[in-house]
Amino acid sequence: MNGALVIGAVVFWIAAWLVNSWLARLRPESQTVGRLINLAIPALFGVTLIVLWEGATRGFNIPSVLLPAPSMIWDRITASLDILWADFYQTFMKAVLAGYVLGCGFGFATAVIVDRVPFLRKGLLPIGNLVAALPVIGIAPIMVMWFGFDWPSKAAVVVVMTFFPMLVNTVAGLSASGAMERDLMRTYASDYWQTLFKLRLPAAMPFIFNALKINSTLALIGAIVAEFFGTPIVGMGFRISTEVGRMNIDMVWAEIFVAALAGSLSYGLLALLERAVTFWHPSYRR
């Protein structure tokens, strides 16, 4: 056991805590400074977590099989960029993207049709709500059996997983525009499609983006878990399950880092897009 490292990490923790509580009490005049502070506080918190992690693993000599230190994981990431990229390409660029686009697209189209037919809405919505709560991931073995080991079976799992959240949210969003606004469109003598494109779809955008954000995480999970049920010898799920078996835990953490990075980036991208599309929404107006 290396006491100095542990004590150092704890001292850093306390110092960071004091800095953060001082930052949180500041009431800056300008908005840019306020925004910078709001970024700095969680960033410092994250750095503290990593320092504590590093200090604990090195200080207490935790075997790297259990929990590798962040520096070890970083070394592994930089040393095996080519493998990580191949896995990322197989899982994310092929399976996740294809499945995500198809699933969200089908969900959206179905929602527009369902919205037009009240009987379908009454019948399909309770079922959609039920399925959205079900462990859909369980269809992974079936899809692997139907579509083979390569990426189409993973994309199929992603399609099914993303379809229902999109359906339910879009249907809810399409009824978000007020009766007054719809009446206004009628007085303009606009037909169904004009009302749909000029009023109801823009009003539904916050709901649709909510589904897109939920789905971005679901899609990544679906593709990775589906790879546990059979896969060619490349892919993030494949790498995780085999490297766990070989006790190369640092490689597993490297894949987790890539997955978390991909997940956060797609989430952030969607959030930016949402801000651009729904600029009119009260939560973005100042």
């Binding site: 506080i41 969680p42 994250g46 977590l49 995480t217 999970i221 799920g237 995780i240 978390a260 989430y267």
Partner: peptide, 19 residues
Amino acid sequence: DKSLMPWIITSQTVPILAV
């Protein structure tokens, strides 16, 4: 509130099921 909330949201972009 300021330090934990962003990380709680980030924690969900980690595909934990995969881990």
